[in-house]
Design a protein around this nucleic acid. Sequence first.
DNA 1: TCATAAGCGAGACGGTACGTCCCGTCTTTAT
DNA 2: ATAAAGACGGGACGTACCGTCTCGCTTATGA
Lengths: 202, 202, 202, 202
Amino acid sequence: MAETRAPDSTRRSERSRRAIYDAALALVGEAGYGRTTIEGIAARAGVGKQTIYRWWPSKAEVLLEAFLARGEQAAEAVSDPALPDTGDLAADLKQVLRLTVDELTDPGFEAPYRALAAEGVINPELGARFVSRLLEPSLQLYVDRLRAAQEAGQVAAGVDARVAVELFVGPLTHRWLLRTLPLSHAYADSLVEYALRGIAPR
Amino acid sequence: MAETRAPDSTRRSERSRRAIYDAALALVGEAGYGRTTIEGIAARAGVGKQTIYRWWPSKAEVLLEAFLARGEQAAEAVSDPALPDTGDLAADLKQVLRLTVDELTDPGFEAPYRALAAEGVINPELGARFVSRLLEPSLQLYVDRLRAAQEAGQVAAGVDARVAVELFVGPLTHRWLLRTLPLSHAYADSLVEYALRGIAPR
Amino acid sequence: MAETRAPDSTRRSERSRRAIYDAALALVGEAGYGRTTIEGIAARAGVGKQTIYRWWPSKAEVLLEAFLARGEQAAEAVSDPALPDTGDLAADLKQVLRLTVDELTDPGFEAPYRALAAEGVINPELGARFVSRLLEPSLQLYVDRLRAAQEAGQVAAGVDARVAVELFVGPLTHRWLLRTLPLSHAYADSLVEYALRGIAPR
Amino acid sequence: MAETRAPDSTRRSERSRRAIYDAALALVGEAGYGRTTIEGIAARAGVGKQTIYRWWPSKAEVLLEAFLARGEQAAEAVSDPALPDTGDLAADLKQVLRLTVDELTDPGFEAPYRALAAEGVINPELGARFVSRLLEPSLQLYVDRLRAAQEAGQVAAGVDARVAVELFVGPLTHRWLLRTLPLSHAYADSLVEYALRGIAPR
DNA sequence: TCATAAGCGAGACGGTACGTCCCGTCTTTAT
DNA sequence: ATAAAGACGGGACGTACCGTCTCGCTTATGA
């Protein structure tokens, strides 16, 4: 059991960590995931390769953490991450799905997010981390909003909120990942209408 | 205009083509997409590397054609590719979605299909071919079945069948690709129930 | 016994081989053996690293062959490699040892020759090749000349010519390798005088 | 003039110094000079790398000092380092050369000595130190003995003792360094006989 | 007596080179 | 002309060390 000596994380260089995140996100955005290399990230970050290999097991993990770090920065700016609750469930969901459409179409966001999703499709370990650290937290917001609506009698009592969430998010993600048909606000609205009828109280 | 002369496909070796397909599918299944190499495919197929480069532009294309070729073999065995139409729309969809769940879980099928999907997520050209050659044809079967139901008054008249299809297929694919939660027949059934209510006539 | 597939030497690129020799000798001369790298040789020769690793096991072997190749070129220009035999043994040996001093002092020759000798001191395999391919052939010329002198009665009959050779060459090499004291024609002459008396007939 | 402040040698750890010497000699003996690294020496000595870099400029210097330190230990055991002078010059020289042969063949001695010699062949600075600290002192003992013999009329008056020494030591070193032919007591004896005749009085 | 500054073990850091794998191209020989 | 074979120039991999640096921790004075 030749455990390869774990590095001492208290002595880690925060400066290098940030430079690596920036370089990784920039390169994936510019050249694509396949043409982004560890050597390239190291060179752009002004960092030795070993500093990357010391702290991350793979290119995909670097990108995942870089993405998470960016997300946390963005999250600090927002006080309440919860979905809006104006009482009008349909309007609230449409608003959020429209925002999601915008985000998925944002050039700076799309490339690394696609790269991570694709890597997670093939690599179960990374996929699990991708889901638990990035995807599930935002799905949970939907779950919370749907439960609130359920208590307000706007959603049928027997509906499993976790499954219901996928009625909204699943088709959107499907279109985005596989590029079957273009994403649009109109499509988001249609989804909300169909899916909401599907889980409405009798 | 020194156009790199296109090879004469009439003299192409059918033997090599098949060996390449077999090797490609086997290697992706055994080692994963990332660890499958053109050299590896060539060696395993007992073929020169150039024979691959002559006929395919990339590893992904080899795999896509290999997958299609296998699909066509399977298709020859089936006379009518259409979805069942017993008149009971819910039952028909449940049956098909359950079969889809089984297929997505089949070990021999899953690895290359995931590999292609993931590559398509990142590579738009391949993604487009993946969708048009593999995905859309089967989605079209759903569209046809839903249109028939619509004419039979089992689906609301205003519903866009192409969008409706995604209410069934989108969540299922989402779970499979991202492995958020396990696929099961019960989940397939739930999807059919929720989604069908969403597009039911008033 | 996983024999690492030997390359097909009939398809070897003569062009690359020569470029590698030139680059290796130039770099050792310019930067010294320690600062000469395989990557540097490959880059300077305009060659892939693998082309070096395919044909040579180490930097030292590249240099040895480069040196031998240069020697062979030089040898082609000379019809008879034998030592001069004017009948005057002392004069002949002085002439040859003086030439050797000049050669060992020649800037273009010294650096690679030192590098090879030093590597051979540490690495017995390379040392053996260095000796058998470079050193012994020239020592043999001395042996031949001494045997001729022996037959002419200028050297004592009982003397082992191979040992006698080292009386001339050993001290010279010792000074050169270890730089104890400067090499000079005068030193060469002294050596010949002392050593020749040592092996003279009674 | 930001001279990098010289370390305070009064506070130097004798314990570490010795551990470094031991580790260096052991590693060179076990793995060879090329595979001995500063990191390896530090790890084996249980010492920080900086402790080596603080006190020595290079791997070769560490080894040279380690070798010298061992030599001094050995020298303390001997009262008089001078060569024997029994009056029989040939016998005295044969005895010393035979001892030298034995030493050069001693496994614990050979590896580091070869490593230093080889490094000195390539690196003139180290070579100079190698010669002045290790080689010349012992050559001087020969010079002294030969001068004594000269005064006793056993060596021709005109002979330069420093040059004469090399007639004995040069061929021996040549054989040892380059491994042209095996070292043996018989070879040592032959050398003494030939060389002594070369410098004998008329 | 006790701060304070040196040497020290430890090891992270920016780098360079290693030797290997594979890329996509090209050339040779055989069918 | 296609095919098997594989050498080639090239680029990235992940590893090993380089020499520098920064961290706490002894340890040994000198204020």
